[in-house]
Amino acid sequence: MISKASQSFQVASPSVADQARLRLAPVIRIALLLAASVIMLAPIAFAVATSLRLPAESFSLPPRWLPLPPDWSNYKMVFQQVPLKSYIGNSAFVTLSIVIGQLITSALSGYAFGRLQFPGRNVLFWLVLATLMIPLQATIIPVFVLISKLHLADTLASLILPALSTAFGTFLMRQYFMQIPNEFEDAALLDGANQWQIFFNIYLPLAKTGLAVLAILTFNAYWNEFLRPLIFLKSIDKFTLPLGLVNLQGYMGTGSISVVLAGVVISLLPVLAVYLVGQRYLIEGIMMGGLKG
């Protein structure tokens, strides 16, 4: 179906038939893109529509995509069925702590690797960068052991502590700091600023796009994170949102999917808000290789 979309690029040869196709081509292309959009948005629309239907009707077919009048009782129910408030609070606390931590550590290390001279700098930078190749799975068992030895198993700190420093964030912030001209430093030195002031008052504000990119990518990654919470957390009241929802789906089964989907919709809201506010930064970060699952 979608392969037809590219046929629409067979443009411009002079015959009459071709000219007719040329006029038709954009219409077909846009029709196919609209069809693709419907497919891409359908699961989100399904979750929202079903969450607003009576639980008894949640499996009724044909599906009602416009749940009128909306029934909000699922949203009340999901808070009663599971400690959703704790899930939201835990997710928010973990995610925001990691975002703030990564902003601090990456701003410092990115500035050092990008703008300060010190012996061994390049070797150290490449070593840090090389750790980007290491997948989470290759470290998670020893990290779990370490967390247990530190008596941090089943605490939110077990999720936060190992995530505070980041090779990707270091790389990203270094790129932004390196783009800023040296003249700012020279001028600040003439004004009598010391090195800390040059970093904090001059270069850090100039790299705020990088900070925004990193904050948004990090927020998204950790708000949605599943594997680490699944392994590190045991008690229900410590669960983060994705873990709590999967757990809820597990014991509700197909009993009342509208309640589960109400929870899913709640978990999507912050992410949608972030897209509306910061899509420019998101896209910039993705182009640099961030947000890879």
Binding site: I44, W223, N224, L245, V246, S267, V271, L272, L291
Partner: peptide
Amino acid sequence: LPLLTSAAS
């Protein structure tokens, strides 16, 4: 948009 959602949820 789907990229921004949690794979688990």
